[in-house]
Amino acid sequence: MGCFCSKNTRHTPGYEEPTVLAAETPFTVSEVEALYELFKKLSSSIIDDGLIHKEELQLALFKNRNKRNLFADRIFDLFDMKCNGVIEFGEFVRSLGVFHPNAPVADKIAFAFRLYDLRHTGYIEREELKEMVLAILHESELILSDDIVEIIVDKTFNEADTKGDGRIDQEEWKEFVSKNPSLIKNMTLPYLKDITIAFPSFVVSSEVEDSEM
């Protein structure tokens, strides 16, 4: 009895077995192992503690640890399922799994809804939508008058808020995405399909062959 600890394998805090993660996500065991190599690299880029801190995610995404971005912050917050300020390996794999081309569309729609539900109210509020539009304008260094921004937000709300209660609920969101599938385009990362081929540098020798699973 007792836990099994390999002398040669020292895993990061929050490590979970690839077989467990592969069973819960679209990834194969060897793909999860490849993601672990990527995770180790990302999680030691600034603080070598085997956990991805927000600055490390920013560094990976923007090559700049200090670049703030509303949407990158939202991605971090959703990946950080335990809300403890860091992304553990299991959280990393499960969250990236949603971005896999083979992940269920329903999962992508739900994830996008949570991304846009900035204040965790269970709805996408009009003010949140306007805040996000202003954020992307600021990021893009585009200047639009407040009137134009209001028109864009109003038009979208008129189309999406079919119940007319001033907020978009999950049911309305699903319906809106079904009419505008481009809205979840950024929820699919083609790189994640066959990650072991796309990123051979992350591949390590697999202890368990997928064919044996």
Binding site: L38, K41, L42, S45, L59, A60, L61, F62, K63, N69, L70, F71, A72, D73, R74, I75, L96, F99, Y116, L129, M132, V133, A135, I136, E139, S140, I152, V153, K155, T156, E159, A160, F176, N180, S182, L183, K185, N186, L189, Y191, A198, F199
Partner: peptide, 25 residues
């Protein structure tokens, strides 16, 4: 334009996770 606010928002670089897979050296 037929673009809605969410289409515009989705263009943010914050959603582009491909950076995770690029060498940081």
């Amino acid at each position: 334009t037929n673009l809605n606010a969410f289409d515009i928002i989705s263009l943010s670089s914050g959603f582009d996770l491909s950076g995770l897979f690029v060498e940081n050296d």
